[in-house]
Design a protein around this nucleic acid. Structure first.
Lengths: 341, 341
DNA sequence: GGAGTTTTGAGGTACGTAAAGCAGAATCTG
DNA sequence: CAGATTCTGCTTTACGTACCTCAAAACTCC
């Protein structure tokens, strides 16, 4: 049988209360005694029984997720995964709160963060838009002992405990490689369609993509990125105009949201079918575009995985328990028509 | 606060003992009373507290993993993930037993399965080699109420509760698309390097690959697959001979284990560098081959994910609890140089 | 309506830990 | 060395569920 606190107490020659004090980092134990208890713990291989501890503690994890109010389908997917997670959260004493703030609006995010009652919330995950005010708000929370995870979009490392999302620079390079390889011998121009360059992840993908194309595919030339601002109408208009103007576009990189607009334009003329397209985010639309041969590849981050990972990471911080690093790594997934899930 | 069994008893107007009988499916409760209790459970939204239940039950999950004794690096990786999982398994009352059997040997597997004491083991996961005797052994276990999960390699659906692994037909098609697209305008032959065609997953990948190449890339022609039997020396010899003989090989699909042998041969002559290569399984060797430009893409299934998923699925079966389907889907991962984890 | 059976109630113990209060011991301070 | 302070021991209650026993109540059947 597994050893219990009683066994540890016996082994260390101290009382159960002392073991409890050591285990829960309560004060009032001499360093020497602490060492003795810890030695006994190691000797016996004692591991705290989480079930019993949770039961006794009556702990409830109040996790707050702050996400941009959904315009694009990726964020809608993320929200959907959050509500899914909410269904199961009862099972492990977790209460998920979802707070929506205006997209791309650092001040709105800061207001949300500033409004958090540190006594009520045990952990926060947010899709970050960075600003000085946001950073200050994060500092306050962390000083109150609240762990912070950024989701999808990051802030500087110093202001959060975990980043849950992909390496956007690598993602941009990946897109470049795919387009370069798929285009093959042909030469020509590559169009870039972004949501907004104000968002760090889009900017990073874009820069990395351009650099990789320049460095490795001399036959290709990147056109200046157009910014669709997560709006299908705007994206459609800008892209249609661009493709109308530029005659030798052989590739297109859709950096973020706005796939619907891209698909609309690409299906509008037969001659556009030859363009090699790599897009981001797997949604119903982009899946269909893959099946139809409009998109050649889609780069994805698994929103469900991200939500579950953020929850696990925050809880691990709260409880000071270890984490399985591999399980928390968010992959840069590549999908083509044949490996759709 | 969350409702407890006491609340349910009150709401249903029965005693705690009756609620307990209903919850744990014990006999001696009239159907009508059962209905009343269940109605109360629904009304209150009662959910059993797993922590408390586990504590009271003193349940220990004894899970047995049967894996082929590792020759190839994928299986070694799987074993490694299993030992990793073992470290954390103490935390949730799970005991993992790992049993190794001779590779590709259905009888050895059957012997292992037949030797299982149904009273001691609560769930079994196995890398399957199918045979009549194996099927019989699985039937016996399932009749004893032991859930079965197949790992990486499947048996017919009727003989197991879950399959944890990728769709190998889709994987073969994926490889075909990648090679076809990467090769581009060039025409020529494609070499296939398998472990053994006796293993279902290799056979499936191979067949799907050949069919996809035939159907979609008329400029390419598949050579008969060579079987390296998971042995670097054999693979090396066969492949070297093949490439020496065939003059216009433009693509190579490494279907399973044996990547080391493939890499050896491909680096042996400068002229082989032009061959487009897609391989299976991400290991240190294949990662390096991607970085060096020897491999163009690697298709992978995440062994760690598979192990954790199998554990979750078996436990869910044992406890009769729900499962998050998306979390358990094993992806056909595509890696190129730029999106390595 | 009585004997027999089935269903239900009441109450207890146990699981391993958390968290308290209080008393007593050990150690430090001046 | 007295007094203050820090450390430790002992004990109790609680968490929510599982599982058991024994007795009482409610049914069945003849």
């Amino acid at each position: 049988m597994r050893p219990t606190v009683h066994d540890v107490a016996g082994e260390a020659g101290v009382s159960l209360a002392t073991v409890d004090r050591v285990l829960n980092r309560r004060s009032g134990v001499r360093a020497e005694t602490v060492a003795r208890v810890n030695a006994a713990i190691v000797r016996l291989g004692y591991v705290r029984d989480i079930s019993a501890a949770n039961l006794a503690k009556q702990r409830v994890y109040n996790l707050l997720f702050i996400v941009p109010e959904g315009s694009n389908s990726f964020m809608l997917g993320l929200e959907n995964e959050l509500s899914q997670a909410k269904l199961y959260s009862v099972l492990d004493r977790t209460h998920l709160d979802i707070h929506k703030v205006k997209t791309f609006d650092a001040d709105a995010l800061a207001v949300a963060l500033e409004g958090i009652d540190a006594g009520q919330v045990s952990g926060v995950a947010l899709v970050a838009t960075e600003s000085e005010r946001v950073r200050r708000a994060l500092v306050r929370l962390r000083e109150a002992g609240i762990p912070i995870a950024t989701l999808v979009s990051d802030v500087s490392e110093a202001y959060r405990d975990h980043y849950v999302g992909i390496d956007n620079i690598a993602a941009g390079r990946t897109a470049a490689s795919l387009i370069g390889r798929f285009v093959g011998e042909r030469t020509g121009k590559v169009a870039l369609v972004a949501g907004s360059m104000l968002v760090k992840d889009h900017a990073e993908r874009c820069a990395a993509f351009e650099q990789a194309i320049r460095g490795e595919f001399p036959g290709l030339e990147c056109l200046p990125a157009i910014e669709g601002r997560d709006d299908a109408v705007v994206t459609r208009a800008l892209l249609a105009e661009l493709l109308d103007r530029e005659r030798d576009v052989v590739g297109l990189y859709s950096i973020g949201a706005g796939n619907r607009g891209v698909i609309d334009v690409l299906t509008s003329r037969a001659e556009y079918r030859g363009i090699t397209v790599v897009a981001h985010e797997l949604t119903d639309h982009s899946k269909q575009a893959l099946r139809d041969g409009i998109f050649d590849a889609v780069i994805n981050q698994d929103a469900g995985h991200e939500v579950r990972s953020a929850i696990r990471l925050l809880k691990a911080r709260i409880d000071d328990t270890p984490v399985i690093a591999n399980q928390e790594a968010i992959r840069i997934e590549i999908y083509i028509r044949d490996n759709l899930p």
